[in-house]
Amino acid sequence: MKTALVTGGGAGLGRAIVERLLAEGWRVVSVDRAEGTTVPGLEHLACDLADRHAVDALAERLGGMGPFGLAVFNAGVSATGRFEAIPIEAYRRLMTVNAETPMLLSAGLVRTGQMAGPMCFVSSLSHFTGYPGAAVYAASKDALAVYAKSVRKPFARRGVSVTLACPGPLRTDHARRHAPAGADADRRMPPEVAARIILDATLAGRRLVVPGRANRSVALAGRLLPGTMMRQMRRLIFDRLQGEVW
């Protein structure tokens, strides 16, 4: 049986990915802050992915658990509100969880020969649109996206394909907490749907996946008219924020 690694597998998109993999017969190692329920085929590793010492210990531990037939670096946190109104410590944690930890874990797994299959980095649609009202979140997700693009060829030489996933708004607790006033939850994609599309693309070795046709149109518009899209995002998000959430 092949083993998959999923970070942030306890909730939202990560949980949907874990459930789908279990249903397809994978053995899954799920890394999250809290211990989860035990299910056959599923192993939980508790780790605060914002804590450098804990991440170093995790990297060591993963070294003895492979080889992994698949790795999905999905864990992420957000911080929405005016840039200057959120404490720098929160941004430090965010940057570590969203950018530093996945880069470091993926490099370590490839270096030690523990990867025997594809890898997916979950960034965000904000990579194409920009995200005023979440400037540091945007920075972390852009960093992760470009890391994924950068390592695609060198990792491919070691037999590991790299997929960059840029999902748009999802119907998860995370999105609900950070959504601006008046946002319509029905228009967000159910995490199960995004999980299926992202896993199919990753297992097929695709370079980029943006789940959902509407999101792909938004990504295209952001590429063609970045300034216009950014101002639109300001009106839709930054101007409607009602405080800071992190």
Partner: peptide
């Protein structure tokens, strides 16, 4: 290098981060 560089992956990533950060902050400020 902010668009990606195989030989400077973390550097390219950090510069991409600066790009996204500056664009969002320019709008906020």
């Amino acid at each position: 290098a902010r668009k990606g560089a195989a030989g400077f992956a973390s550097y390219a990533a950090a510069k991409a981060g600066l790009h996204g950060f500056a664009r969002a902050l320019a709008e906020e400020w």
